[in-house]
Amino acid sequence: MDGRLIYLMGPSGSGKDSLIQAAREPLQALGCEVVRRVITRSAESVGEDAEGVSPAEFELRREEGGFSLSWRANGLAYGIPVEIDQWLRKGRHVLVNGSRGHLPVALERYPELVPVLLTVKDEVLRERLLRRGRESPEEIEARIRRNGLFVGDGSIGDRLIHRLDNSDDLAVTVNNLLSLLKLSVKPDQI
């Protein structure tokens, strides 16, 4: 495939959705499509530009080959529409909101993907999770503990995982993402 898959990961509350929204137009100017995930819950409750479907509808789409990637996490099912394969073949880059736990499977399917981990300081993550009000205090603390699991050496096998800190100004994170993509994608592909 001529395009590159940009696989954005990060803990809930790290600001992935805000980053994707803020970077959408500059990414498109770089020839990068931003994918709308399919999730088994109401799109209004997701807080992202996602398509909410019932579990039955999700399973039907999965069985019919409607997803290039799909996984389950936190009691929900997530899918990346198969259309990304067409975009990649046409040389378009594609940014997806992925899952840290599903990264090894994504790397098998897309060996040239660019893994990007959005990080955030624990105190900022706690504040964001409290502000959005979806999790109990116990669930928030569990998410904070899980956040600490992803501060290792920054690689999976021999693949470097690019890290972006989103603890401060979102505009800085957007610029850092765009700079990373310019470095990770061949100049003739931009």
Rank of each mutant, 00 (worst) to 15 (best):
A23Y: 03
E63Y: 05
S18T: 06
P111F: 13
Y78P: 04
E33C: 12
L113H: 09
Y78R: 00
E48R: 06
A50N: 06
A50G: 09
E59H: 14
W87G: 13
G31A: 08
G47R: 08
G15L: 02
A77T: 10
D49P: 05
L60Q: 15
A29N: 11
S70Y: 03
V96E: 02
K16F: 05
G65D: 07
G91T: 09
Q86E: 09
L30E: 07
G66F: 01
R41Y: 08
F67K: 02
R61C: 11
G47W: 13
G79R: 03
V34T: 01
Q86T: 09
V82E: 07
R62Q: 10
W71G: 06
F58L: 10
W71T: 04
G75L: 06
E57M: 14
E57N: 11
V46N: 12
A56P: 11
L27S: 05
H102G: 05
W71V: 10
A22K: 03
R24E: 05
V94T: 03
R41V: 10
E64L: 14
A29E: 12
S68G: 13
N74F: 04
G75M: 04
L19P: 02
V114Q: 01
L76W: 03
G13Y: 00
D17I: 00
S70V: 06
R72M: 11
R37W: 12
N97P: 03
E108D: 13
F58K: 00
E59G: 15
V94A: 02
L69H: 04
G13C: 08
G65C: 11
G65A: 12
G65V: 10
G31C: 10
E112V: 11
R41D: 12
R37A: 08
P104N: 02
R100Y: 11
R24K: 12
I80G: 01
V35F: 03
S54T: 15
G52H: 06
K90E: 15
K90R: 14
G75E: 06
R109I: 15
S68F: 09
R89W: 10
Y78Q: 07
D17R: 01
S54M: 12
V94H: 02
L19C: 04
L107R: 05
R41F: 08
V34G: 01
I84K: 00
L30D: 04
L30K: 01
E83V: 09
V46F: 14
G75N: 06
R109V: 11
C32G: 01
E48V: 07
E51R: 14
K16S: 07
A23C: 08
E48Y: 09
A50L: 10
A106S: 08
S54W: 09
S54I: 13
A106Y: 06
L19K: 02
N74I: 03
I80E: 00
E83C: 09
G52D: 10
G66H: 03
G65E: 06
R89S: 13
G52N: 07
L107C: 04
R24I: 08
S14D: 10
E44D: 12
E83I: 08
P104Q: 04
V82C: 12
P111C: 12
S42R: 10
